[in-house]
Amino acid sequence: MAVAIRNQIRVLRFHHGEMTQQQLAEQVGVTRQTINAIEAGKYSPSLEVAFLIALVFAKPLEEVFQFDGQLPGA
């Protein structure tokens, strides 16, 4: 499924002591498979989970997630 939302979670995990998907999942409160699906662009998380992920990495949301879409009609 094509999604317009990209993310830097894999890179950020690497820069946080090679944090595993399981460790991130436990901190955010989702399953490891959900973190994997987010990283693979197969699932766009809720705003709450997106903010929690950004909080774990101590980064602003836009440094973790990027939106490539356009406004309708633009």
């Binding site: 894999r10 399953t31 498979q33 994997n36 990283e39």
Partner: peptide, 13 residues
């Protein structure tokens, strides 16, 4: 190189 490819097989929850 060190991280798994995105879109690879996800183990079943």
């Amino acid at each position: 190189v060190s991280l798994p490819e995105p879109g690879g097989r996800v183990s079943l929850s």
